[in-house]
Design a protein around this nucleic acid. Structure first.
Lengths: 224, 224
DNA sequence: TCCCCCATTGGACCAAGGTCCAATTGCCTT
DNA sequence: AAGGCAATTGGACCTTGGTCCAATGGGGGA
């Protein structure tokens, strides 16, 4: 019963016996898995990271330890939920790991049930997050097809201005605003103003930030 | 230098010497504070909880311990950030506390600097959250002044429907929809459709949930 | 019972948004 | 140099949204 389709559990632990045990446990429970003996080994792996899944990290490892690996991954924008396992964890270490966003921190010995439960939870969470991220990326792609002018108009529409006010703001005629506006709706594939505004929210370009509106070198040349 | 105006630090610890030490530490650093010897004592206190501030909870206490108190407060909707301090904490306990949303978990002995830093951070966080909550409550109050019909129209507007479609949906004439719509804008004090839609987002009544639209027993009589 | 408020509708009218067709200017790439 | 696209504007026309004034029916509270 492969209840975890498309998801992959990535294990990083330097202890071969733990590797074997986890491998068997995950295998018999139908999880796709990838096992590494060190942070370095994992970081230099060039297979693309799975869309859904989770990391199971040992805390104590030669080279980069589990928490350092967590920090490094955070820096790189790697987003899978992390579950720590440890033989000699301390309170400060576990607290630090949790503050940095770890999903759980298990001390050996733990029963495999607990670990599997946590892993399932992690995978579900990663699924949810990845679908949100995909949605957001889709929006961003559409946003990128907008020309400079269209982005400005977009911003002012979301701000709640009337076409007339937008025209004044930009020093152009209302007629032109209408043209841009129509194109914004079309390119963003918005069926209503309400939808367009929610898109802006999702893109986190609420009525202020103009930084994101950084435009292509010049207008144009920016479809895809 | 009372740098923590309006904020209050609530301490719950059964050890009198800790109470005294924390009291002095907080006092000399200009924090308003309230100190309790047990969870029970704190829970039965009838002074209103401060808008901003934080809780400093001892983990080991007779009666309800720190974590149980945390759970109880969560159940009651009490929302101040929690910082745990403990003499004999274990990894599982600290992890559980963090999973339940604690801001930090300090093991004695800790230097007072650390605690003060955490407390300041907690207070800032509580400030931010409380201002968000107030904003949300203000919106809810306005929403409550809407009549049943107005709420339905509100929902359909946010869904992106045209007046005509809303009219069809509700089995009334477009003219009537306009009236309701105008009243919605007025009562919600929205200056533009964009604003109204953002309000709906904040109220978390995105284009689906009709549960929240539970109306007054009958239409009317529902201003304030 | 009387009044208030909600819900509803009508008509008139203006403002704003959307669409279709058409055209000009300026920059960048080919 | 030529073509392409962005940016701009014009005009005509229709659809929507918003506002003002006015009116009716119904239910609940004072």
């Amino acid at each position: 019963m492969p209840d975890e389709i498309n998801a992959e559990v990535i294990v990083v632990d330097d202890d071969p016996s733990v590797q074997r045990a986890l491998n068997r446990l995950l295998m018999t429970n139908g999880f796709a898995r990838r096992i590494f003996g060190s942070a370095k080994e994992f970081l230099s792996d060039d297979k693309p990271s799975p869309a859904a899944g989770c990391l199971v990290l040992d805390v104590e490892m030669p080279g980069l330890d589990g928490l350092e690996l967590q920090a490094e991954l955070q820096k790189r924008g790697f987003r899978l939920p992390i579950v720590f396992i440890t033989g000699h964890g301390t309170v400060p270490i576990s607290v630090e790991a949790m503050k940095q966003g770890a999903l759980d921190f298990l001390q050996k010995p733990f029963d495999s049930r607990s670990l599997l439960d946590v892993i399932r939870k992690a995978i579900e969470q990663s699924r949810q997050r990845s679908s949100e991220e995909r949605e957001c990326r889709d929006l961003e792609l559409k946003f990128l097809t907008l020309s400079t002018r269209e982005r400005e108009v977009f911003r002012l529409i979301v701000k709640g201005l009337l076409n007339k006010q937008i025209a004044f703001e930009l020093g152009i005629v209302e007629k032109t605003v209408k043209v841009h506006r129509a194109r914004v709706m079309e390119k963003m594939q918005a069926n209503s103003l309400a939808e367009l505004i929610r898109m802006a929210e999702t893109l986190r370009l609420p009525p202020c930030s103009s930084a994101i509106f950084a435009s292509p070198t010049r207008a144009g040349r920016n479809q895809i």
